[in-house]
Computed example of a mutant assay.
Amino acid sequence: MLTTPALPAGYQLHHLESVSSTMDEAREIVTHNPELAQVIWSDTQSGGRGRRGREWISPTGNLYLTVAIRNAMPVARAAECSFVAAVALHAAIADLRPNLAERLRLKWPNDLLVDSAKLAGLLLELEAGGEWILIGCGVNVASSPEGMPYKTTDLLSEEAYIPPGQLLQAFVSELKTWEEIWRRDGFSPIRSAWLNHAMGLGGEVTAKLGDRSVTGIFLDLDPDGALRLRLPGGDLMSIAAGDVIFPNTVNTGS
């Protein structure tokens, strides 16, 4: 059984039993380790969070980590790394558990689903004025939270269990590969890879934008990663931030 994940050259691992948040831990660690990419992995979190400060329930047995990488892109493009991470996580799980590959879907902007149930979430934050990109990742490995306003699942329930350390190793390796593609070739190949696994592409979706909702056909992503919809009247709309709901499902959350 894998005990200590092997990381690519240039990455340093910190494995902790418990932290408030791997994101917060990463902010502290990068100030003292400016040369290497940092991977902060904790067995549990007492204050894990998702998008918009939402609570991320963090029992033992699942995967909680933050990868901190130096940002070589303009700060205005840093948000593209959320899609880089999503493609990397999809690739890692699909490669380790091919039986699950066809059911894995990416939900805009930052979730990984099995069919319509949430398996994992990603969170992107910047540190030191954009010099560092912090990529938070939570994967339901051995359990999934109950009582949520959306469907959840975990790898164990899907008969696709992966030990957290093994999944971490595969994810960080894929992340390095896809980050290099992003830096070298720009967002276009990342966008194409993400769309290949997009949930709801070509169908009707509703985007919740604060106090209003917009429904339209999910056409694709703009060149900067914004969700592109065709509205009922035929107009096109690009959405940079919001929550997406699919017909006949509850919100899969963030």
Rank of each mutant, 00 (worst) to 15 (best):
A37Y: 14
A9C: 09
A72I: 05
A142I: 13
A26G: 04
L156I: 14
A240P: 00
K176A: 12
E35A: 15
A101R: 11
L119Y: 06
Q38S: 07
G136L: 07
S254I: 09
P223F: 07
F83N: 00
N140L: 04
V87A: 04
F171N: 02
E179P: 01
A91E: 11
V244E: 07
N251Y: 14
M237D: 14
N140H: 04
P98R: 03
V139Y: 01
A78N: 05
L36E: 15
G234A: 07
A88E: 05
G242P: 00
L7G: 02
L96M: 06
L104P: 00
P164S: 00
R212E: 10
S143Q: 05
G225P: 01
T153C: 13
G147A: 02
T152H: 01
D95P: 02
P98S: 04
L236G: 11
E158K: 01
T252V: 14
L119M: 10
D222T: 14
E35F: 10
K176V: 12
P149I: 01
W194C: 01
P109T: 14
H14P: 05
A198L: 03
T252I: 13
V172A: 06
T3V: 11
E35R: 12
R183F: 10
P74R: 13
L195H: 06
A76P: 12
A193E: 02
A117Q: 12
I40A: 01
T206V: 14
I57K: 00
L13H: 03
V250M: 15
M148D: 00
Q45H: 03
S42E: 07
F171M: 01
P145W: 09
T22Y: 02
G48K: 01
M237I: 15
A78T: 06
T153E: 12
D243S: 10
R103D: 11
L167A: 06
T3Y: 12
L7R: 05
T249H: 04
A37C: 13
R228D: 15
K107Y: 02
A128C: 09
L201D: 11
